[in-house]
């Protein structure tokens, strides 16, 4: 008993003495802190040390200001993400990485561009879609089929101006 308690004290002292307090925070607490940063800045913390390599994946929100992020960001989505707000208005023709499409816990996806091919969102329960008048309704059919748990589907008419597709 005594040795166990001594070990515990040693451990506590070691943690207390360690100057690197931030790396000693729990993963969820670091995730919470990084959630206050734009996603790009959170990802940059991966350069700090090996402990930090995947730390940013604990963030509980994601924002991307450019579709370009997806072209690089095949690791950009963690299984913990529940909400994703994508605002793609440039009409770029690209497909989302497979990781997004199998993002296990994704529940809500807002303003998803209908142009992108949707594959599988098994957990998605709500989707808000910005659509133009000449929307391709076949794409919307895909969403229904690939998201069996979808309960809410909102169409929002948007005037994007000129789009090059």
């Amino acid at each position: 008993m005594l040795s166990t308690s001594n070990q515990k004290v040693d451990e506590e002292e070691r943690l207390h003495e360690s100057k690197d307090r931030i790396s000693n925070l729990s993963k969820s607490l670091i995730g919470h802190i990084l959630s206050f940063l734009p996603t790009k800045y959170a990802v940059r913390t991966s350069i700090l040390s090996s402990i930090w390599k995947q730390m940013w994946m604990s963030i509980n929100n994601l924002d991307f200001d450019a579709l370009g992020a997806f072209n690089y960001g095949k690791d950009a989505l963690s299984p913990n993400v529940q909400e994703l707000d994508i605002d793609i208005r440039l009409g770029l023709s690209s497909s989302l990485p497979a990781d997004l499409l199998t993002c296990g816990k994704l529940m809500t996806l807002e303003r998803y561009s209908y142009r992108l091919k949707l594959t599988v969102f098994p957990c998605m329960t709500s989707l808000k879609l910005g659509v133009e008048r000449d929307v391709d309704w076949r794409a919307l059919l895909d969403i229904r089929e690939s998201s069996p748990n979808l309960r809410t589907l909102i169409f929002e008419e948007v005037g994007y101006g000129v789009l090059n597709c």
Partner: peptide
Amino acid sequence: EAAVREENRWAF
């Protein structure tokens, strides 16, 4: 370090 940068090039 270079590999980490490369992996998430868009962020760096």
